[in-house]
Simulated assay, not measured.
Amino acid sequence: MRKQMIENAAFDVAEQVRTVEDTIDNALSEIAELQGRMMRARSVAGVGVRTGHDALEHLATTLHSLVVARGGMGNCHAALLDAKSVVPGLRTVSFGDAECPPKTAVAPLRVVA
């Protein structure tokens, strides 16, 4: 029973790691879209380059911060994979062909106490 609880907890963590990674990637895509729209809006309005430049700099800082966060999540992911090898009951657990649940993972039936 305890082993199953540990496996369930590890699966929940793995799913959440994947969710956070995907969320950061989606945010990066949205920022790229926003940058493009800002450039088009400036062009359509026919205003000078300095107009809205502060906003563009803030957006670029945000983009850089998210890229750093993405790398941090990758490092977190790797550290969790390493930690798995020292947690009793998880050394031999895998969530499919890879070390992590697939993006379309469906939680298997679980024993509920």
Rank of each mutant, 00 (worst) to 15 (best):
R2T: 15
K3R: 05
K3L: 05
K3G: 04
I6N: 02
I6G: 01
E7P: 07
E7F: 04
N8G: 07
A9Y: 14
A10C: 08
F11E: 13
D12Y: 05
D12T: 06
V13N: 10
V13D: 10
A14V: 07
R18E: 02
R18H: 06
T19W: 01
V20P: 12
V20Y: 09
E21Y: 10
D22I: 09
D22S: 15
D22M: 14
T23I: 04
I24G: 02
A27Y: 02
A27F: 01
S29R: 11
S29Q: 09
I31A: 01
A32N: 03
A32P: 00
E33M: 03
G36M: 00
G36I: 00
M38G: 05
R40I: 01
A41L: 13
V44F: 09
A45F: 07
G46Y: 14
G46K: 08
G48L: 12
V49R: 05
V49H: 08
V49E: 12
R50A: 10
D54E: 12
A55M: 15
A55I: 15
L56Y: 13
L56C: 07
H58T: 09
H58A: 06
L59I: 07
T61N: 08
T61V: 08
T62H: 13
H64W: 08
S65I: 00
L66I: 00
V67D: 11
V67I: 15
V68Q: 11
A69D: 11
G71A: 09
G71Y: 14
G72K: 06
G72Y: 04
N75I: 13
N75R: 14
N75W: 08
C76D: 05
C76S: 12
A78W: 01
A79G: 03
L81Y: 12
D82A: 10
D82L: 15
A83C: 13
K84Q: 08
K84G: 04
V86W: 05
V87Q: 01
P88K: 07
L90N: 05
L90G: 05
S94K: 15
F95K: 14
G96M: 03
G96L: 03
D97Y: 03
A98S: 11
A98V: 01
P102K: 08
K103H: 12
A105N: 05
A105C: 06
A107E: 01
P108H: 09
L109F: 10
L109D: 10
L109N: 03
R110F: 04
R110V: 00
V111P: 04
A113K: 09
